[in-house]
Simulated assay, not measured.
Amino acid sequence: MKKKVIYLDYNSTSPCIDWYDSMKEIMLFPLNPSSIHYFGRFAKGVLENARREILQTLGLNIREYSLVFTSSGTEANNIAVNSCSNAYALATDHASTLRCIEDTSRIIPVTCKGIVDLDLLKILLKGRGDKPLVCVSLANSETGVVQPIRDIVSVAKSHDALVHVDCVQCVGKLNVQFSDLDCDSMSISSHKIGGMAGIGALIFRKNFSIKTYTKGGGQEFGIRSGTESVLHAAIFSQALSKAVNNVRNYMQHVSKLRDIMENLISQVCENVKFWCQDMERLPNTSCIMMPYVDAKIQVMRFDMLGFAVSMGSACSSGSMTYSHVLKAMQLSEDEIRSSIRVSLGYDTTEEHIVEFVKAWEVVYNQRG
């Protein structure tokens, strides 16, 4: 019998939608969009339909924007950042952006609340030579903090800078009008919204010169060569449509449960801290400091009690490392080492929350 585990790590990955019935016909075909015979033309049609539907679902004009399928949100960020020799990123951004920027003077500081320091951004961009690219995660995967994207874009544009927005965490979780972001490129990921892992997308204005990332047969507009996964693209489109169309109900559902959870935990421990609780956050995300209990121990004990939570971003090949996000917010070493992330989803119930809070109390009482 399988062990019962309550999943509270939706920012890491979401359970896949039930796609089999709608895709089983496609699965039976040999799908290579580069082939010129019937099966190749069929595959090409499915791929281009998915590309067009994703742009339309996000409210983006297909005459203004292009979409390149990638292997992940990480690769999409890599392609965007490496297309500019003068890129900047927030100190709390995802590692796939930060690790592409070797010059630490181009890392944009944030406040103790995790929000970009706009005054320092202006100073960093002032008088720079090559056209800058400002990269920003619209919503942080660990704290859930939502950046003031309109202000960031306004500052960037006033300094003749391009803007890349990492939208991986916000798609399907926030009611965002993507056409209003006024950014030059954005990245999204399938497995965060109920699609399959192994596919993401870089969306960019047609006048944004994206450099070739993978050389070969010239697929994906010559930017990312290699045979595309048609099935993954079709599922991606379907999952995105479902997530975006249901976003209001989703936000109402998870925000209610998160507030219940934080209130109940506060009754268990008066010294608990919920980072950025007073800021605009993803409605499903809570970054919780359990006093005097190391985050690694918390994650393992919760796992033994039947709860899947995390220390933060799960994109470090299974490693359990302390948060660079909380460090950038200038929290103390003890606070950083005692913080975990809980992220909820559509399948989370109030019963799950009550059970988790009971487990939280058990783990807390085992401290020392």
Rank of each mutant, 00 (worst) to 15 (best):
K206E: 11
I210E: 10
E228W: 01
Q238R: 13
Q298L: 12
G222W: 09
K206W: 04
G222N: 06
C276S: 15
Q238C: 09
A328P: 09
S237C: 01
V272F: 04
D334E: 15
G216M: 09
K273Y: 10
K242V: 12
C287Y: 03
K296C: 11
Y322S: 05
N249F: 09
E228C: 10
S229V: 02
V230F: 08
L305C: 07
G306M: 04
C269S: 13
N245V: 00
Q277R: 14
E280Y: 08
D294W: 05
Q277T: 07
K256W: 08
S323Y: 08
L326E: 07
I340L: 14
L240N: 03
M261K: 06
I223V: 15
M311W: 08
L240Q: 05
S316L: 14
C315A: 14
F307I: 00
N271Y: 13
E335C: 03
S317G: 04
I265V: 12
Y250M: 01
F208N: 10
F307M: 04
I210Y: 07
V299M: 12
V272N: 02
K211R: 14
F307Y: 12
K215I: 12
S338V: 02
C315I: 13
K215P: 01
T212V: 14
F208I: 04
N271K: 15
S310K: 06
Q267Y: 05
V309N: 06
N245D: 14
R341I: 14
V293E: 05
G226H: 02
T285E: 07
C276M: 08
K242M: 11
R281T: 10
A243T: 03
Y213C: 01
G216D: 06
C287Q: 07
Q252G: 08
D259P: 00
N284K: 07
D278A: 12
S266C: 08
Q267L: 13
S286I: 05
E333L: 11
K327W: 02
S339T: 15
L305M: 10
S338L: 04
A328H: 03
V299I: 15
A295S: 15
V309K: 05
S316Q: 13
M300T: 09
H232Q: 12
A314L: 07
I235K: 12
M329S: 03
F274L: 02
S225T: 09
M290H: 07
S229Y: 10
V268Y: 09
L305F: 09
M304S: 14
V247T: 08
S310V: 10
N207M: 02
S266M: 06
E335Q: 15
L264T: 02
K206L: 00
K215M: 12
K206F: 01
M329I: 01
C269G: 01
G216H: 09
M329N: 02
M261T: 06
M261S: 09
M311N: 05
I265A: 03
V309P: 05
L257N: 01
T321C: 12
C269D: 15
S316Y: 10
A243H: 04
P291G: 04
A295Y: 10
E270S: 15
S266T: 14
S319G: 07
G312K: 00
N284D: 14
F302D: 02
M300G: 06
